[in-house]
Nucleic acid binder design. Structure first.
Lengths: 224, 224
DNA sequence: CCATCAAGTAACTGTTTAGTTACCGGCACG
DNA sequence: CGTGCCGGTAACTAAACAGTTACTTGATGG
């Protein structure tokens, strides 16, 4: 109830003390979030089951509703965390410090490899778009998260134009959409593509080839 | 039961006779298929409701189960029809009759515009990939439908290589995946993209710009 | 050692869902 | 004329579902 210095002190003491592990609210919360990420990624919003999330998290529905309100709020939380994940890792690249051509190549490589290592992120995007960004639109946390990317990319392109290596028509959003398109489609649609074309797209050789293809196409599209 | 000349004659008579319109099996069947296409496209496999499909089709569940067996078989039928639709239209392009550069440009334009005019096809692909092509894999009708595309594309590329306009490394599957990637991602992810980048991707100006971009990128990636 | 309070459990509820069954009505044919 | 068949209706059922409520457990502070 009250958050006096006394109780705060006790909380710190509790948090740093080895406990029986039967109770661990933060752990439970994190477990629910992770379980929900997997469940929503595998089954979509309509197909995900609240009971399944609770079971995967090793807890029960009572805790899920206690920490997250309801299914929709939990889903939004999962989606927000997924975006924070990729944008944070992207920012750490610091593409602005490289020469323009390398910077674009690095961003393409990073994006492809992130998609490859985080299939659940691609699934969540697919689900959210199926619903026309119904939940993402309600998010208040994500408005500023993405502007940094376009800003940095814009600077890199300007630098390249001045140096005479990039075409004057190169546009930052177009460049990012090109990189993301080539990575997203190949991975998210790998199952139908492999089926209809009778060729397993996910073998190491094919993945390597497509990685090189993405870098090649991206640079070919903006070089003078 | 039996399909003698007599009963066949009667069927023809029935089909050509103006009836009370209370009964029309083919119409009902087609209405169910069309309603199911929309329902599955809008809500995915998990989110689609059999009652909603029946209502949209102006009929009821009894007929749906009568014609299509169950929800899963109906879904597969919808998916198969969607693939037949795009591959049939694609074949009519006859890209083999054009000069190589125009042929690739035409294929890119066609694919983009088909995606633009058939959002339900993109949604169905998304849903099917979410489930790792679980139903498509079971389809026996679709094995040969797609080989024609790659064959024709392969011929065009060979012709272009001989003429010296295309790079020797250009690969037919890669070219198609490039075209499809750029169209698919832009449209299927337009909702989250427009939200996070604060720019409406679906305005006529932006659509035109992206159409030109796809053709430009595709050709830039294979030109010598 | 007892009172308190939050973490966690499990059984329950009202609703929705896929799939079924019992029935209706008109048409073709004997 | 009446019998069987087929397109179509609507009410039903069993299971699954999201969300709730009554309860247990165990740590902590007095």
């Amino acid at each position: 109830m009250n958050d006096t210095g006394e109780s705060a002190k006790k909380k710190i003491k509790r948090a740093s003390t080895e406990r029986t592990a039967q109770r661990d609210p933060e752990r439970t919360r994190a477990a629910i979030l992770e379980a929900a990420t997997r469940e929503f990624a595998e089954n979509g919003m309509g197909g995900a089951r609240v009971d399944a999330i609770a079971e995967r998290a090793g807890t029960n529905k009572r805790m899920l509703y206690h920490y997250f309100g309801d299914k929709e709020q939990l889903y939004l939380r999962v989606l927000e965390e997924a975006y924070v994940g990729i944008r944070t890792a992207e920012r750490a690249l610091n593409i602005g410090t490289r020469n323009p051509e390398d910077a674009i190549g690095e961003l393409a490589l990073f994006t492809w490899r992130y998609f490859l290592q985080h299939p659940e992120f691609l699934s969540l995007l697919g689900t959210e778009n199926l619903h026309r960004a119904r939940w993402l639109r309600q998010s208040v946390r994500l408005k500023e998260l993405h502007s940094h990317l376009i800003g940095e990319l814009s600077e890199v392109l300007e630098e390249g134009k001045k140096a005479g290596v990039f075409s004057e028509t190169a546009d930052p959003l177009n460049v990012y959409l090109t990189i993301a398109s080539l990575g997203y489609f190949y991975l998210s649609n790998q199952y139908t593509l492999s089926t209809i074309f009778g060729r397993d797209l996910i073998t190491p050789d094919n993945l390597d080839a497509w990685e090189r293809h993405i870098v090649h196409v991206t640079l070919a599209s903006i070089k003078r």
